[in-house]
Computed example of a mutant assay.
Amino acid sequence: MKAVYFLILQAGLSWAGLRFGCSSVSIQRLDPVVEPGQIPSAHVHQIVGGNAFNATMQGDIGEKGTCTTCAYTEDFSNYWTAVMYFRHENGSYKRVPQYPNAQLGYEGQDAPDIKGGMTIYYTQKDFTGNGEQHITAFKPGFRMTVGSPTTTSIANSSVHPGLRYTCLETILTRGYETPDFPNRPCPAGIMAIHHFPACWDGVNLDSPDHQSHMYSTTRGAFQEAGPCPASHPVRVPQLAYETMWNTTAFKDMWPKDGSQPFVWSFMDGKGYGTHADYMFGWQGDSLQRAMDSECMFHMCGSPGMQGILKTQTVADMNKCAVKSTVIEDTDGWLSELPGQTMPM
């Protein structure tokens, strides 16, 4: 990865890129963006971030939490996706465990100690440089979604190049991305990737569909996004999630007919309906401060370097949790997925 620290920082331009781990804060049926106040929500989600997460969230959530599962202590945002399950030939379901990104590391700690969760990115350009555009951080109360559980065809899925899967050969490799679940056992599991739009209308913190206030110029695979249109002129950070699903636990249970056995918690066995939610919760000006800096990835919080953001230990990340509001089994061998009673 090339660095661009030799470039002179120009007034009003941002050169930063964040990449960090967040351990799991909760796994349950709640969705304060799409189904606010509904207990339980329609399907199970895996959530990371601040412990203010609950069924109804309003206002500046960055000021409401007491801890966060993310590496940066000023980030009380919440990030969530559906949960992946293995469907056995006998019709039962088992939640696929998550494992931490082996490419992560900060403050000399080992990322494998992180309790599941996701890798979060806030990039400006791509992995070869940070770009020259001014990046406006999200505002308190901001929220958005990407993708939809109602997407059932590859034709509709193709309009979202930032929603993809990678069949991992090893825990350190990346590779070819597909719009649907890999059709073979993956040696190191499946990585689910969610890239959000990075163009904002500059006015609305949300919209009725949670997407219209944003516009996507994403090209996928962390390629540089296209220019923002006049309707959505404000460039915000390119937010992305990576979730590592340890499907290897089921390698000896692969269906005899060779069919793909993994499903999302809303009973999508193709993978086209993959989606994700985001609720901004960085405290004060911390995210803008990072976007205005010249730090890249773990250097944004490393002592003795830029030190733009405050970090915490993996042990402290793992301590933070949210008490479940919905009491049900989401982890054992289940006869049906929680909230899903109709067969596929």
Rank of each mutant, 00 (worst) to 15 (best):
L9Q: 14
S14P: 14
S14C: 14
R19L: 08
C22K: 09
V25I: 15
I27W: 07
R29M: 12
L30E: 15
G37N: 10
I39A: 15
I47L: 09
N51F: 12
A52V: 08
A55F: 13
T56N: 12
T56K: 11
M57R: 06
D60F: 01
G62P: 11
A71M: 11
A71T: 05
Y72P: 15
F76S: 08
V83E: 13
Y85M: 02
Y85I: 05
E89Y: 03
E89P: 10
G91D: 13
S92K: 13
Y93H: 06
Q98F: 00
P100R: 07
E107T: 15
G116W: 08
I120R: 05
Y121Q: 00
Y122K: 02
K125C: 03
D126N: 13
G131P: 15
Q133T: 03
T136D: 12
A137N: 04
T151F: 01
T152W: 00
S153L: 00
I154L: 01
A155P: 02
N156T: 08
S158K: 03
H160F: 02
G162Y: 04
L163T: 07
Y165N: 10
C167L: 05
L168S: 11
E177N: 10
P179Y: 08
D180G: 12
D180M: 04
N183Y: 02
R184G: 06
G189D: 06
A192N: 02
I193P: 04
I193S: 12
H195K: 00
A198T: 07
A198M: 13
C199V: 13
D201Y: 05
V203R: 06
V203Y: 14
N204M: 05
D206Y: 08
S207G: 14
S207Q: 15
P208Y: 04
H210F: 14
H210I: 01
M214E: 01
F222G: 06
G226V: 05
P227D: 00
A230I: 14
H232V: 09
P233D: 13
V236Q: 07
E242W: 01
T243E: 11
M244V: 02
W245F: 11
A249N: 11
W254F: 08
K256V: 10
P261V: 10
P261H: 01
W264H: 07
S265W: 00
M267K: 02
D268F: 04
K270M: 00
K270W: 05
K270L: 00
H275D: 02
A276L: 04
D277L: 00
G281F: 04
G284M: 09
D285P: 06
E294N: 13
E294K: 14
E294P: 09
H298V: 05
G301S: 15
G301L: 09
T313Y: 02
D316K: 13
N318I: 09
K319P: 02
A321L: 11
K323H: 15
E328G: 14
D329I: 13
D331Q: 04
D331W: 02
E336M: 05
P338E: 01
T341N: 12
M342C: 01
